[in-house]
Design a protein around this nucleic acid. Structure first.
Length: 253
DNA sequence: AAAACCGGCAACCGCCTTAAG
DNA sequence: TCTTAAGGCGGTTGCCGGTTT
């Protein structure tokens, strides 16, 4: 047996124990990140360098935010995915504290499930249109509703229409606004077949690229760009931006 | 009460890219 | 320029806890 194959046999796999977590955390705190093979070798952990890196990035890093994905984060994920596709790490960079793995899991367990229920291919135009024209606006509405601030409400002609009838779901109370659940998207789905959405699925074109892609552009710094610099989601989703979102929404419909 | 099923998530795998020698 | 090791990324798997039958 070669030393290498013996080493392979010694490599532990499966769930990490508390003790292993402690060892890894302690080692990284002292020596810093990087050189993961060295970490694995020198920390005394019987794990591969890859495994150490993954455990640190997805779980042990102090910045890692755990728990439910907020509506704002869901919205960002939908938007960024429509722009970048399955570029999970790139999407994760826009959501401080969230890992690519977490976002990927969210997408697969929530969004793909919805696509399945709708019996449509996630790569289809129909699915993209549903996402852009129904789910995203619905999420924006719920975010606006949950902000609960009078100054975030429309004070112009927009006000007359109140919330969009076609997009209003049954549960827009603020209490669940921060909760992530399957119902977030389920609630968002009303078959977009009526005339409230003149540009909608009938012509098979997406609104997003036409109306939002150029103006509500994360990379262009319009709207809520600031996450890349580490700004918190709370400051990004301020009243001004919520009002901006609302305007964008009404422009879409 | 127990078995079957399902959803969520942590972790692994394999491929690709990059950097160092 | 080529080789190789390490890191990064997306896809997939398998476990576990909760729910349904």
């Amino acid at each position: 047996m070669t030393p290498q194959s013996k080493e392979d046999m010694d490599v532990r796999k499966g769930p990490w124990t508390e003790e292993e977590d402690y060892m890894l955390k302690t080692y990284v705190n002292i020596h810093g990140e990087g050189s993961w093979n060295s970490v694995a070798r020198l920390s005394g952990l019987k794990r591969s360098g890859k495994s150490c890196r993954l455990r640190w990035l997805n779980y042990l890093r102090p910045e890692v935010k755990r728990g439910n994905i907020s509506l704002q984060e869901q919205l960002l994920i939908l938007q960024l995915h429509s722009r970048w596709g399955n570029r999970w790490s790139k999407i994760a960079q826009q959501l401080p504290g969230r890992t690519d793995n977490e976002i990927k899991n969210y997408w697969r367990t929530r969004v793909l499930k919805q696509a399945k229920q709708l019996k449509c291919d996630v790569n289809s135009q129909e699915f993209r249109d549903t996402m852009r024209c129904v789910w995203i606006p619905r999420l924006i509405e719920r975010i606006c509703a949950s902000s609960g601030s009078p100054s975030a409400q429309p004070s112009t002609a927009y006000e007359k229409t109140s919330l969009l009838p076609a997009l209003s779901g049954t549960s827009s109370d603020s209490q669940d606004a921060e909760l992530s659940s399957v119902s977030d998207l389920t609630d968002c789905y009303n078959p977009p077949s009526n005339s409230n959405n003149p540009n909608s699925l009938q012509n098979g074109r997406g609104l997003w690229s036409e109306n939002l892609g150029g103006t509500w552009n994360i990379e262009d710094g319009v709207g809520f760009q600031a996450t890349e610099g580490g700004e918190s989601m709370e400051s990004v989703w301020n009243e001004e931006n919520i009002w901006f979102l609302r305007q964008q929404l009404y422009d879409m419909i």
